[in-house]
Design a protein around this nucleic acid. Structure first.
Length: 199
DNA sequence: CCACGGATTGGCT
DNA sequence: GCCAATCCGTGGA
C-alpha cells in the first residue's frame, strides 16, 4: 500500500491541489475491506473570491471545517437526500476546498454496488454510474456527515499516489450545477475517462 | 418564525 | 429534456 499524502500536500493553492488530485487514489478502510477509486473529476472552491463557495459568506456551523486548514474532509448534506465530499486545502481561515465529483472504482466494487443499488450483480451501465457524480460517490463509499472534519492523514479515509498525468490529459471547464460565479473554469477532469460525470 | 433554495439524482415524457 | 424528491442551513421579517 502506498504512503498517504502528507498534510503539506493539502496546504497549498486550491487549484494546484485540485489538478494534482486527478489520477490519485481515494481510499476508505472499513472492517470488511477496502474501498478505493481513482479520482477523475474535481472542482475548486475558494471562499475568498468565489461566490459559489459555501465559505463565501464567512464561517457557519455547516461550513466551519472549510476554515480549519488543508487536509480535512468536508462533507455536506444537500437537496434533502445527498451528501458530497470535499478535500479542504490551503491554510487555516482560507475557506478553500476541492469537491470530489467522480472516481473510477478500483477495489470493493461489490460493496459499492450494494451501497448504490442494493445488489452486487451489476451490468456495465451500472458499473459506470457507481461513482460518476459527487453524491453517487459518497453513496457508494458510504460517506455521510459522520465523516465531516475527518483528518485525511488518519487511517480511515486517505489519498495515495496513483497515475502521473501530463498536463494535456487534464481538461478545465465551468463548474456544474451552480448559479453564482458560474463562469469560472474551476472544474478539472481527466480527458477521455469514462467515469467523468459529464462532458 | 417562516420561506427559500441548493456544489444532485433518477424517473418520466 | 424536465421535474419531483426531501431536509435543513441560512437569511429576512
Amino acid at each position: 500500500m502506498q504512503k498517504k499524502l502528507p498534510l503539506s500536500f493539502y496546504r497549498r493553492d486550491v487549484h494546484t491541489v485540485a489538478r494534482e488530485l486527478l489520477g490519485k487514489i481515494f481510499i476508505k478502510k472499513e472492517k470488511n475491506g477496502i474501498l478505493s477509486g481513482k479520482i477523475v473529476e474535481v472542482e475548486a472552491y475558494d471562499g475568498r473570491i468565489d461566490r459559489a463557495a459555501h465559505s463565501y459568506n464567512g464561517k457557519t456551523k455547516r461550513n466551519e471545517v472549510m476554515f480549519l486548514g488543508g487536509g480535512l474532509l468536508y462533507v455536506y448534506f444537500t437537496y434533502g437526500m445527498h451528501y458530497c465530499a470535499n478535500v479542504v486545502t490551503g491554510g487555516e481561515g482560507d475557506g478553500c476546498a476541492v469537491l470530489i465529483r467522480a472516481l473510477e472504482p478500483l477495489e470493493g466494487i461489490d460493496r459499492m454496488a450494494m451501497n448504490r443499488f442494493g445488489k452486487t450483480a451489476i451490468g456495465e451501465r451500472e458499473k459506470l454510474s457507481l461513482t460518476n457524480g459527487p453524491a453517487k460517490f459518497c453513496k457508494a463509499f458510504d460517506i455521510d456527515k459522520n465523516y465531516n472534519g475527518l483528518l485525511l492523514t488518519e487511517d480511515i479515509i486517505f489519498i495515495v499516489e496513483g497515475d502521473n498525468l501530463i498536463p494535456g490529459e487534464i481538461v478545465a471547464s465551468k463548474r456544474i450545477g451552480i448559479k453564482k460565479s458560474a463562469d469560472l473554469e474551476w472544474r478539472y477532469f481527466i480527458k477521455n475517462n469514462r467515469y467523468v460525470s459529464r462532458l
